[in-house]
């Protein structure tokens, strides 16, 4: 485990890593989520699923095989014990509840557990790829994102404004400031990241939230 975390993304990835258990089947979104395995303790081995058709996704080592890429289209590897399959089976695993945890980035999350992360009307319409299936089917959905957008606005909202990726799908949000759980009663602030005050989180979070009594 790395002891000094120098930037917000590392803080987020290191905290998400604590949510993963040995043997979990995990799907990681592109970007920040792919940093999570760097922070796993040595005795925790997870099995990474790549939605383009395999389990046992590993880091790129040695020669590049043009037929072996991850879900971001980047050259990748498969670990011993892994398996390839077609896109149909890949999404049977995902939708069928055989993926324990998915970690995705987010543009907005709201108090009902709604997630928006696939398009900004008029600006960015890349397509949802596998994200809608992942948030629908994975047993646990963790949104790993910076607390605020680049313009300083909160990404944790009472109600999402952008088109949704999934309705009522998010279980947990990890930011560089805090950890929230989504419950029937709305957001519950479970943890403050090291050195962060409750006042800071209140100031930078648009949505209402309940504070876990253990934090008070």
């Amino acid at each position: 485990m790395i002891s000094t975390l120098i930037n917000p993304k590392q803080i987020i990835a290191a905290r998400v890593a604590k949510e993963l258990s040995d043997g979990d089947v995990v799907n990681l979104g592109i970007g920040l989520p792919t940093m999570v395995p760097n922070f796993l303790p040595e005795d925790v081995n997870v099995i990474l699923q790549s939605e383009n058709g395999y389990i046992g996704l590993g880091p790129l080592e040695g020669d590049i095989d043009p037929d072996l890429v991850n879900a971001g289209g980047q050259p990748s590897s498969i670990l011993p014990g892994g398996a390839f399959f077609d896109s149909l089976f890949s999404f049977e695993l995902i939708r069928g509840g055989h993926v324990d945890v998915t970690v995705l980035g987010g543009l907005e999350v709201d108090a009902k557990g709604n997630l928006a992360n696939w398009m900004v009307p008029g600006k960015m319409v890349p397509g949802m790829g596998g994200a809608m299936d992942l948030v629908t089917g994975a047993k646990k959905v963790i949104v790993a994102m910076e607390h605020m957008a680049k313009n300083g606005s909160s990404k944790i909202l009472q109600q999402c404004r952008l088109p949704l990726t999934g309705k009522g799908v998010v279980d947990m949000i990890v930011t560089e400031l805090a950890v929230f759980r989504v419950t029937e009663a709305g957001f519950v602030l479970e943890e403050l990241q090291e050195g962060v005050s409750l006042e800071t989180v209140r100031e930078k979070t648009e949505a209402a939230f309940i504070v876990n009594p253990a934090l008070a």
Partner: peptide, 13 residues
């Protein structure tokens, strides 16, 4: 027409 990837696979199936 944008289709979720798993749905696209199922529609082809």
């Amino acid at each position: 027409e944008l289709v979720p990837q798993g749905t696209l696979a199922e529609r082809v199936r």
